[in-house]
Simulated assay, not measured.
Amino acid sequence: MALDAAIGIGEETAYGTAATSTIGYEGKADSWKVTKEFIESVGFRAGMQTARADRRNIVTMGGEGELEVDLLDVGAAALLSAIFDKHSFTDTANTRVHTFETSTTSGAPSFTAQMIRPTAEGVSVAYRHVGCVATEWELTAEVESAITLSATFDFQDVSHTTKLAEALPIVYPAEARAYDWTRTALTLTRAGVAVPLDVSKLSLSGDLGLKTDRRFLRSSALKKKPVRAAIPTYEGELEGEFTADSLKLYEAFVAGEVLGLRTDLIGLTPGTSLRFDLPAIQFTGESPEASPDELTTHTLPFRVLDPGTGQAAITATYTEPKPKAQPEKATGSPE
């Protein structure tokens, strides 16, 4: 296991301009990969065995990476701001209340993502990805598991260094705990009335509809910041037991009704919480499924819709203590 591996993201002041520090996230996988394209010239030439070495130009096309984490009750605001269109916050004496919303236009910032990978010899190599913009995301809550959040990022360029002094500082929350299934509650409303449902798994995902390949004839291979080119799609799924109450939801599905969904998470750090409000969802299937050796189960995929009332399609409210963090630097690299 790469004990000295680390990943952090820092908000950029301008797309592609590296941040000066990063907020550390405890990533569960390393999928940050650069993409290269070869421009090859081949034509008639005497004595040619195959493509010539001096006829291939290598071009950096940016790349893609995913940040997958167990969602913590402190320090997750930067990641949430990457996947939502709007972000604001208010402070009280002891807490900071963040509000994240979907919107008609994307105001999400770009980030610098630093992935630190240790070599077999114990030298840390810091890979700095600039121009990172979230394009997709998924939240999962499941019995006997922590709440997980993954975000896929498109990035403009990447560089690396083995010099500790050149690595961006990493700031971690002084104390944070993972949200888990034991403090997660769902509320479904049908015509304003709560519908009980025994749910064992919830998933919620978003495709932000961004165009990422904005390259032009401008003496540079670097692309411009992704912009929204398609209507975002937000979807989800509920899984649970088939009961008399979930039968009502099947009936809502076949009737094409629009319902409301709220997910509440209570943190272990005092005063922390996270709420997702979806005022308009519509089930897209499916029928309950019987089994010879299990209770009948009910899977209910759904689409998140614009309620048409001026409300956001999804609003997330994240409450945490006022940030207190300690900077840390990567270890194992020579100066």
Rank of each mutant, 00 (worst) to 15 (best):
E175S: 12
E121I: 08
L238V: 10
L139N: 00
P196H: 09
A141E: 02
H129N: 15
G236C: 08
I170Y: 13
L197K: 09
T212V: 15
P226G: 05
L204A: 06
E239D: 10
L202D: 01
R214S: 13
E166D: 14
S203Q: 09
K201T: 03
A165F: 10
G131D: 03
P173Y: 05
F153H: 00
A165M: 09
V158W: 05
L202Y: 00
A151Q: 04
A244W: 04
G209S: 10
E237H: 05
L149T: 00
S220L: 09
R214V: 14
L149E: 02
G240I: 00
K163F: 13
L217W: 14
Y127K: 15
E121G: 12
K225Q: 15
E121A: 15
S145C: 07
K224P: 00
T135D: 00
F155R: 05
S203G: 11
R183W: 07
P196C: 09
F155Q: 03
P196A: 11
K223D: 05
F153W: 04
S200T: 13
K211M: 13
I231V: 10
V193P: 03
L222S: 08
F216W: 10
S220R: 10
A185W: 04
A146F: 08
S205M: 01
L197R: 08
A134Y: 06
R218L: 09
I231H: 10
A141S: 06
S200L: 02
P173T: 01
L238M: 04
T189M: 05
E235R: 14
D154T: 07
G240F: 00
G192S: 09
L164E: 12
A221K: 11
L168I: 10
W181H: 07
E121S: 14
E166Q: 14
R228A: 02
I147T: 00
G206D: 04
G236H: 08
R214E: 06
T140V: 08
P226K: 02
A146L: 06
T161F: 06
E237C: 13
D207L: 07
A194Y: 03
A151H: 06
Y179I: 09
H160S: 15
W137Y: 07
R190M: 12
L210F: 05
L202H: 01
T148A: 07
E138A: 14
L202A: 04
